[in-house]
């Protein structure tokens, strides 16, 4: 046994099916992208294309400067495309092009390549980009418009969660119904408006076994329970748990970002802990934090705990556990 050296995490995971997996994820995101184009028009397509092209270009550029040889294969492995689409889904429909490009730069260079590239990054690149932009450009990152399709011209609007934070629950219930959240006729970033499109993508990933049920279920479940408890305590003040699951980035995070295999635990027990942690942190930030939405912060915080979770949920190999005398 001594010849096996255990290095500190993150460990390299299997990359046999890497490209297949990545393109499955891309397919799963198509409904969300289509819905965003349907609601926000060509602007949303422009943001998506900019983010994807930006990610691939920055990756090629970095690999070139770093003197790597397999540039073409790395750029085309699909991971930069996934990151690009995820960044776009996390941006508001009014994002200027330069901001989308800064997001791609941060995601690929700061969050991914500096750590050693795919498989070595501790944090989900798209989320690092989102948080970087949210902190740096709070004005541009919170300029929402209502989807133009149902309500005439796109007008500036608050997201349901933003409205909840500044105007209280009563205003939110007057403005939106649960059906609005489900279909996506609300203000929000490209990928957080339509719950139904995200659910279709999520189910596809589950069916293709790209992701497993543990993280989404434990994340959404713990968010449901956490916000449910407060809702039961004071129904006039706290929104109901269904609201919390359908709005903001909860579904997007649960299916597409928390499940990123590089930045989530390996074992089933680990995944359950990881998801539950995200759910509770999201609830805490939404109900008591300074920001209206907390999914991205919650996932990043739990990302940083993954090595620890992996360590304590490691499956004991057969023969390694002493039989109790």
């Amino acid at each position: 046994m001594k010849s096996l050296v255990i290095t500190s995490s993150p460990h390299v995971r299997s990359i046999e099916r890497l490209t297949d997996v990545m393109y499955d994820v891309v397919i799963a995101m198509i409904p969300a992208v289509l819905v965003s184009i349907y609601f926000f028009g060509l602007q949303s397509l422009l943001i998506t294309v900019t983010a994807v092209v930006g990610c691939m270009a920055f990756e090629a550029l970095f690999l070139k400067i770093a003197g790597k040889t397999n540039i073409r294969a790395t750029v085309l492995d699909g991971s930069a495309i996934v990151t690009g689409i995820l960044i776009a889904l996390n941006l508001p429909p009014t994002s200027p092009i330069w901001m989308t490009l800064i997001g791609s730069l941060i995601a690929i260079i700061v969050a991914k390549q500096v750590f050693g590239g795919l498989g070595y990054n501790i944090f989900n690149p798209a989320l690092v980009a989102r948080v970087f932009l949210l902190i740096s450009f709070p004005v541009q990152m919170t300029r929402w418009v209502n989807p133009s399709f149902f309500k005439g011209d796109a007008i500036t609007a608050a997201t349901p969660l933003g409205m909840l934070k500044t105007d209280g629950l009563a205003t939110v219930s007057k403005t939106f119904s649960h059906l609005d959240f489900f279909l996506g006729t609300i203000g929000g970033s490209l990928g957080e408006v339509s719950a139904v499109a995200l659910l279709i993508g999520g189910l596809y990933l589950l069916m293709r076994k790209v992701i497993s049920w543990e993280i989404p279920v434990s994340m959404l479940g713990s968010l449901f329970i956490f916000t449910g408890i407060f809702w039961m305590l004071d129904k006039a003040r706290y929104a109901d748990p269904i609201f919390h699951i359908l709005t903001g980035g909860a579904l997007l995070g649960a299916f597409f970002m928390a499940t990123d295999m590089v930045t989530s635990p390996i074992t089933r027990k680990g995944m359950l802990i990881f998801g539950a942690g995200i759910g509770v942190l999201t609830g805490l930030i939404r109900l008591f934090g300074g920001y209206p939405e907390g999914v991205s912060f919650a996932i990043l915080i739990m990302n940083s705990l993954v090595p620890l979770i992996d360590k304590y949920t490691e499956v004991k190999k057969f023969g390694l556990v002493k039989v109790k005398a």
Binding site: P138, V139, T142, T166, D167, G290
Partner: peptide, 14 residues
Amino acid sequence: KDGGDVDAITAATI
């Protein structure tokens, strides 16, 4: 936002 006359600083309502 609270029904008064003061223009809040963008992104710094609090």
